[in-house]
């Protein structure tokens, strides 16, 4: 039986997609620094996080879902609903903390609902979360058709408050929240049984079930996590925009999915890392920054570049998968 002994070189291959994403990030950033003065400043890097903190949070939630082989199309709409609920609640004079809790509860609840339907009625995640997307968008307009601005002083303070880092770089509190979410997600995915079950389901759901893992809990759980992250991302977005509006974040789910895929997570599930998704968001952010620095290029170039990047990363993933024995 000793002939069966194999010692495959696992580390590089396992992390290859994530490393590739970081390399692309460094390259795009390098191009920017080479072409534009002032691009390679600490503040530009900090702004990548500041401007995309909500995307990071959404991407974390999406990573959970995609790791199980599912997909969540509702994230953008749930984020919009969150901005709307927050704005409306504050407008109605609710204490900020209560408003925040209401938002988080709604998002998590919607996630739970979708997870239950997906699991217990065996309806495709694509369809259920698509319905969830319609529902959340519709609910926004049920609350108000117009944009509602947020005037609550504590919200505004939180939104405008900055943290000074050495070197004159400033961050917002949103960035801290986003990073906390990332750390929490890494902990949950890699150091808890829930997290391992998520990966196991992505590998083979029936095997995971036969192994006696708590698959139901994990499968419904990922949609709750995603719902929670969407709600939290929505809150960060409302800090960023200081308003609630049903048309906030239209198409955001596609950016999030793109970020996760560019971050090296396989859509089939079972393989990927939260760190990759963060890198994916940073790549998207850098592309956007580059295009805005260029000035003459119109914003739709962003979409084209994202499309091309997606393609490049899918091609890379194909190569990696093919090379596996």
């Amino acid at each position: 039986m000793s002939t069966l002994a194999l010692s495959p070189t696992r580390l590089p291959q396992r992390f290859l997609p994530v490393m590739a994403t970081f390399v692309v990030f460094v390259i795009t950033f390098g191009v920017g620094s080479f072409r534009y003065e002032g691009f390679a400043s600490g503040q530009v890097v900090a702004n990548l996080f500041v401007d995309n903190s909500f995307l990071i949070v959404l991407a974390v939630g999406m990573t959970f879902v995609i790791l199980t082989g599912g997909i969540d199309l509702s994230v953008g709409a749930v984020a919009a609903l969150s901005t709307m609920i927050a704005a409306a609640a504050l407008d109605a004079g609710w204490p900020p903390l209560l408003a925040v809790l209401a938002v988080l509860a709604t998002g998590t609840g919607l996630g739970l609902l979708m997870g239950l339907v997906i699991h217990h009625f065996d309806v495709q995640p694509f369809i259920v979360t698509l319905a969830g997307m319609f529902l959340a968008r519709g609910l926004c307009f049920l609350i108000s058709v117009e944009s509602v601005s947020i005037d609550d002083p504590s919200f505004r303070d939180l939104a405008t408050g900055t943290i000074a880092l050495p070197g004159g770089v400033t961050l917002t509190y949103s960035v801290l929240i986003a990073l906390a979410v990332v750390l929490a997600a890494v902990y949950v995915l890699h150091l808890t049984r829930f997290g391992r079950t998520v990966y196991a389901i992505g590998g083979s759901e029936s095997s995971a079930r036969l192994m006696g893992l708590a698959t139901t809990r994990a499968k419904v759980g990922v949609y709750m996590v995603s719902g929670f992250c969407s709600a939290l991302g929505g809150l960060l977005f409302s800090l960023y925009m200081l308003s609630g509006y049903g048309l906030h974040g239209v198409g955001m789910e596609l950016d999030v999915i793109a970020a996760v895929v560019i971050g090296g997570t396989l859509l089939a599930g079972g393989s990927g890392y939260v760190a990759g998704s963060v890198a994916g968001v940073l790549v998207l952010g850098t592309v956007q920054t580059l295009i805005s620095f260029e000035g003459t290029l119109s914003s739709w170039w962003t979409k084209i570049v994202i499309g091309v990047l997606l393609l490049a990363f899918i091609a890379l993933q194909r190569l990696v998968v093919r090379r596996r024995p």
């Binding site: 696992r10 049984r193 391992r196 079950t197 990966y199 196991a200 992505g202 590998g203 083979s204 029936s206 095997s207 995971a208 036969l210 192994m211 006696g212 893992l213 079972g270 393989s271």
Partner: peptide
Amino acid sequence: VNLCTNLSVAENIMLGRE
């Protein structure tokens, strides 16, 4: 074989009772 081929050998053996 009802295991998860995307995980490591050790994880597959210990999954659920790590």
